[in-house]
Design a protein around this nucleic acid. Structure first.
Length: 159
DNA sequence: CTTTGGATCGTCT
DNA sequence: GACGATCCAAAGG
């Protein structure tokens, strides 16, 4: 598990920093929804909207430990994912493995209206999550808002 | 193991 | 018209 926090209008690294646009509209909506955007001409990235309606705060999903549907993930990722640990070890890989694209933008993760939901499987929170600066930014690079489970499978390469 | 460069296009200036 | 909240293959140690 690996995530990064983006603090809406107050965060220069957030897509919401320059105000609401057609692309980031979901972030300005109510929490519990999925914000999916297209980047670098070939990748999708997924966020969970977490602030109250109108605040545009979100959490970027950067890495996951696959626990089920491994066969489907391998098929979706293709030959590039040599090892199972590479299936979801990055924001773009994660979306490819789960089949997420722009059509999932705005999905309700509580109701699961588009077949995607956030659920509690009983795994307790990590007692000591690791922290670092966020990856791939040109601004606010030292703000320590990247959180991950140290040693877990499916963590992206950090700088 | 690390470094480097190419692919590729929607979005905002 | 420029630039990404990226990934991967290839090449060098």
């Amino acid at each position: 598990m690996e995530v990064e926090a983006y603090a809406g209008a107050a965060d220069p690294a957030s897509h919401a920093f320059r105000g609401r646009t057609a692309r980031n509209a979901t972030m300005f909506g109510p929490p519990g929804h999925l914000y999916v955007y297209f980047s670098y001409g070939m990748h999708f990235c997924a966020n969970v909207v977490c602030g109250p309606d109108g605040e545009a705060s979100a959490v970027l999903l950067r890495g996951l430990t696959p626990v089920a549907g491994l066969e489907e993930m391998r098929a979706a990722r293709g030959p590039a994912a040599r090892r199972d640990r590479d299936l979801c070890s990055g924001p773009g890989k994660l979306c490819q493995a789960l089949g997420l694209d722009r059509s999932f933008d705005g999905a309700d993760l509580v109701a699961g209206d588009r077949g995607v939901a956030v659920v509690d499987d009983g795994t307790p929170p990590p007692p000591a999550p690791a922290v670092s600066g966020r990856v791939g930014l040109s601004v606010a690079t030292e703000v320590p808002w990247r959180f991950y489970v140290a040693g877990a499978v499916g963590i992206s390469r950090s700088r």
